[in-house]
């Protein structure tokens, strides 16, 4: 048998070990990012998700001014955890629109009463239809949408205090 052939298994094995090692040491990124960044918002019209806020449609997000589109739900614990940050962003003058996923209006009302209401408008997405067409993979998630209704940035998971600066920066970029 030719001698190089005898070394081939070892060569293959070294490649596999390299692959394993790279897998072991590369940062763990299990998030599924939306493919909709840089694209226009899908067309939608959602009924009101809370008693004291209007519903939400595509047109409401094309106002010439960047906005934060926050996907949340009254049954979601991290959503309650991120609400102080949303309230703080709203206080700083950021316009936030909410989409309540798989929710009921009275539950949303209770949630807002308890944790604060930073939202200008709240749409009710009872069947996750908007969530699916945004390419969002969980709750909570936030999208920065520019004045023309183009999606500029996706934040996966809850917004923590250290994320506020990034969100503000992305909003500022979207304003240009």
């Amino acid at each position: 048998m030719r001698s190089w052939l005898l070394w081939a298994p070892l060569g293959l094995f070294v490649i596999f070990i390299g692959l394993f090692a790279s897998g072991l040491f590369q940062p763990d990124d299990r998030q599924i990012h939306s493919g909709m960044l840089g694209k226009a918002l899908p067309a939608f019209t959602l009924p009101a998700g809370a008693s004291d806020r209007p519903g939400l449609s595509t047109a409401d997000l094309k106002t010439g001014k960047p906005r934060l589109l926050n996907i949340f739900a009254s049954w979601c614990v991290p959503c309650a955890a991120e609400s102080p940050q949303l309230v703080e962003l709203a206080r700083q003058g950021v316009t936030i629109d909410g989409v309540a996923i798989r929710d009921a209006r009275e539950d949303v009302d209770g949630f807002l009463k308890r944790w604060g209401n930073p939202y200008g408008r709240i749409g009710l997405d009872a069947r996750s239809a908007l969530q699916l067409s945004l390419g969002s993979s969980g709750v909570p998630e936030s999208f920065v949408v520019d004045g023309k209704g183009i999606i500029r940035y996706q934040h996966i998971g809850e917004i923590r205090p250290e994320h506020i600066a990034v969100i503000r920066q992305k909003l500022a970029e979207a304003a240009q």
């Binding site: 048998m1 001698s3 005898l6 070394w7 298994p9 070892l10 094995f13 070294v14 070990i17």
Partner: peptide, 14 residues
């Protein structure tokens, strides 16, 4: 182990 065994294989199996 496996690397060692494969090297041994290449050296000895001839």
């Amino acid at each position: 182990y496996i690397g060692g065994a494969l090297a041994l294989f290449a050296l000895r199996v001839g």
